[in-house]
Design a protein around this nucleic acid. Structure first.
Lengths: 220, 220
DNA sequence: GAGATTATGGCAGCCGCTGACAATTGACAA
DNA sequence: TTGTCAATTGTCAGCGGCTGCCATAATCTC
């Protein structure tokens, strides 16, 4: 029996598969360029399809809707974020693992993104997402789903039943909420780069414990 | 000069204003009944308009889109939540104020909702929102906007510059994240009531500090 | 009650999105 | 190489969300 590309993911991809991947990347790049140039809502799916030289129907075979192409690189980020937590040594405590996972994920994320589009385009797109209500909403929902997966992993690490102990959920929810707040602040500065985002997030995470103290005056 | 309804909000509403309010409430009630009966996506704006006995065009004069009518009661909740924080005495610390504001808001919220639709309908709708991707996304975005307002109020209470000190944002983000996690868990139990939701939220909030401890074993 | 204001309905039309069918292209084996 | 099968694509028709436009009808003001 010859190599079965359908079942063996390690097999070298055939022409068909490579072509599909190329079409998909082209669609993403064209879409992000149009979105960042003239805005998300002002960009038509027909325009994206035309720019990528496929029919509108084909676009919808690659992406379920216009949102999905806009957030396709965020989906990549999410996978790497989860993988980063899975890679933390078991010796690390929950909070430390979440924190170290977050900081360690940015390198791989940057490289993976760069394979598809220029990183600067992706950064500009982040701001479009943050300032487009529909996109921001969809992004927050995805982050919610990611939270669930992170919490499940945390519960597994600590040997807890996620249905009973709320601490994994609580910790993840708190950290993700804080990081989102950092991202919101970051997106308001047009010139901030990826490193600035990472630094802002860690600074915000460091404020978590102090912020929970019920008297903010004692600390200073 | 007679009473000027356009500029004096305290003036008794005329026939026109009362009729508008009635139409709006009817639209909300019809929409929620249809959404809970046959699902959000399966319900057409034409059907809602027909049930409320207005034209589709009129529906869109009351609500910017189908999402808005689905989340109109959540918008009410948000206003009361903010008002509850504003009403906390200045002596309370930030965390205490957030916590007490949250618990104190539920009474007024329940009463305000009951003026428009039966509370059970609203509770059923909460679960539809939680299980409908598009609605959940929109709700999370609104909560994000609420977070900003809450953080701004917290900064004002403590006399801080919200642009400089991240603690208001961090505290609000953490608490809101935790409460959202509670709401997600709650919505999975078909028979849980409003009181159960409140109790679950406070239980989750109480877990915030323990969850941040980096060793979960010491505590038990 | 006349005239100004405002709410409503009907219509045409754009855009996001989907199902169905036919045509094309790549994969695999005889 | 060629024939067959499966996957990919384009075209077309159509639905639902949503908007601008204009005419009509209901309220409000004097």
């Amino acid at each position: 029996m010859a190599i079965d590309n359908a079942t063996d993911p390690a097999a070298p991809p055939g022409l068909r598969e490579r072509k599909k991947q190329r079409t998909r990347n082209t669609l993403i790049r064209c879409a992000l360029e149009l979105f960042t140039a003239k805005g998300y809502e002002a960009t038509t799916v027909d325009e994206i399809a035309a720019a990528a030289d496929v029919s509108q129907r084909t676009f919808f075979r690659y992406f379920a809707n216009k949102e999905e192409v806009a957030l396709s690189l965020q989906a990549v980020e999410e996978e790497y974020a989860l993988a980063a937590l899975l890679a933390r040594p078991a010796a690390e405590g929950p909070l430390t693992a979440v924190r170290n996972g977050a900081t360690a994920s940015w390198g791989p994320i940057r490289r993976a993104i760069a394979e598809v589009v220029p990183v600067t385009l992706h950064l500009r797109m982040q701001r479009v997402i943050e300032s487009t209500p529909q996109l921001l909403a969809a992004r927050l929902r995805r982050l919610g789903a990611l939270e669930e997966r992170l919490a499940a992993e945390l519960a597994r690490r600590e040997g807890l039943d996620p249905a009973l102990d709320p601490r994994p959920r609580v910790l993840v929810a708190a950290c993700c909420g804080v990081m989102r707040a950092a991202a919101r602040v970051w997106s308001e500065d047009e010139n901030a780069g990826l490193d600035d985002l990472v630094e802002l997030m860690t600074r915000h995470l460091d404020q978590l414990a102090p912020a929970l103290a019920d008297d903010w005056r004692t600390g200073r």
